[in-house]
């Protein structure tokens, strides 16, 4: 029973390790170069899954403030456009949205009471830091995949094959 509980709380980590092993095995022992690159991409997504899993919080929403939380602030900013920055800051602080209350009373609650400061409970939003790190990693990942594919095409033009063993044989026989 204890074992089942361990799995149910950590099954994401289990899956990430399994996918990572699949990708690592493909990178080591597949003979075809395109298969190796697919394995590399699977490895990358496994690492990204690990980071995103770390940033997840139970009962948390996406890391974007929703409309009702910022709507009042923007409305008041529009009123005093000529004011300087600290006035805008004060206007933003004047809006108080308690996410707890919203969850209980629905969306009307934030319209009814005009609270006094922008209070955000960090536990109600997913952790944005791993998302930022991984967002750039995905785009850089596709760029490196492109470089790998370009080298594959160059090797095919040179040796007429994309199998690693055949290319190695040709290099050996040429020596």
């Amino acid at each position: 029973m204890e074992f089942l509980e361990t799995i149910s709380t950590k099954f994401n980590y289990w899956i990430y390790i399994i996918i990572m092993m699949i990708g690592l095995y493909a990178m080591i022992s597949k003979n075809n170069l395109v298969k190796k690159l697919i394995g590399m991409s699977i490895f990358q997504t496994a690492i990204i899954l690990f980071y995103v899993s770390i940033g997840y919080k139970e009962n948390a929403t996406i890391p974007i403030l929703y409309h009702d939380q910022v709507h009042g602030a923007q409305h008041e900013e529009a009123g005093d456009q000529n004011e300087l920055s600290n006035a805008v800051e004060e206007a933003a602080k004047e809006i108080h949205v308690a996410a707890d209350e919203q969850a209980e009373h629905g969306l009307e609650a934030s319209h009814v009471d005009h609270p006094s400061s922008l209070e955000i409970n960090p536990d109600h939003f997913a952790n944005p830091l791993p998302h930022v790190l991984m967002l750039t990693a995905i785009v850089v990942g596709v760029a490196t995949l492109g470089v790998g594919l370009a080298i594959t095409q160059k090797l095919y033009g040179e040796f007429g094959s994309i199998e690693e063993s055949e290319i190695l044989e040709q290099i050996k026989s040429a020596k």
Binding site: G55, Y56, K57, T61, I62, P63, I64, A126, H131, M134
Partner: peptide
């Protein structure tokens, strides 16, 4: 997207 990482 189920985990809340919509941008990713």
């Amino acid at each position: 997207s189920g985990m809340g990482a919509v941008d990713v």
